[in-house]
Amino acid sequence: MSLLEVDTLSIEVHGAPVLRNVSLTINAAEIGGVVGESGAGKSMLGKAILGVLPRDARITHGAIRLDGQDLLSLSARHRRKLQSRTTAFIPQDPLTALNPCRTIGAQLAEVLPPTPRAHRLAEVIRWLDAVRIPSAAKVAKSFPHELSGGMRQRALIAAAFASHPRLVIADEPTTALDATVQKDVLRLIRELQQDTGVGLMFVTHDLCVVAKICQSVTVMHGGRIIEQAPCDQIITAPRHAYTRALLAATPRHDETGRGLEPIPPALLEQLITEAGTGNG
């Protein structure tokens, strides 16, 4: 049994479909990538799994199972209680995700599993150490604006893993970071994920990052799944024309003349027609 099973999930916002028949599984100790352009529905999928869909979004079909438990059949209260212990989220923008009025330590202590008050600070410092924040004791007492972007993202990663989740959803966790910091943060995410054996859903538009960190990849467009395969296959032998076009549009630092081919409009039209005829 997989850790996370999304089964033919469809979501509408004001009657317009934003996810259509999306199925995906993520196993424990696996990093599954979800790739697509803006508007592909990848963030919506993450929100649906976390149970934080916008008010006007409606699930019209499908199921989300975590460890076999159908999340959609639970009452809101039960679901919150279950997911607060089992799922965690790493957001894109660490500055807006942290409360500017509270210290890093206080915000990290919030997500710890029940810990006696006396041990909380030690536990917070242990987590800040685990994400390689220097002077953890000092940082625990600092406010978010006192840290650099990379440090804030590390603190959020600590917060995600400190609740001992089974599943972590990371939504573009390194898009706002510099290349060298990005690499350190990605390495950190993977190390923590391997040490704790959680399943990680990695939502991004960057195929370069996917190629380095994911084991399986789901390519989405217009709320539909275009292709699902192990990572090496998606990168080296993509079957769908859209995946190939995405790869062709990705520039590379080690080759001249790449990244100047937008997705052909004819292909996009074809995808829209396919979606309209319910084919997928």
Binding site: K183, L247, T250, H253
Partner: peptide, 30 residues
């Protein structure tokens, strides 16, 4: 990009991912 002279340029280049499947990249290349 092919032959960076300054170590900082080299470091930036080592940190930039390319779309090639390489699960070991995170471990080694910086």
């Amino acid at each position: 990009f092919q032959a960076p002279k300054h170590s900082y340029t080299a470091k930036l280049l080592r940190s930039a991912p390319s779309p090639e499947y390489d699960p070991d990249w995170l471990q080694h290349s910086t």
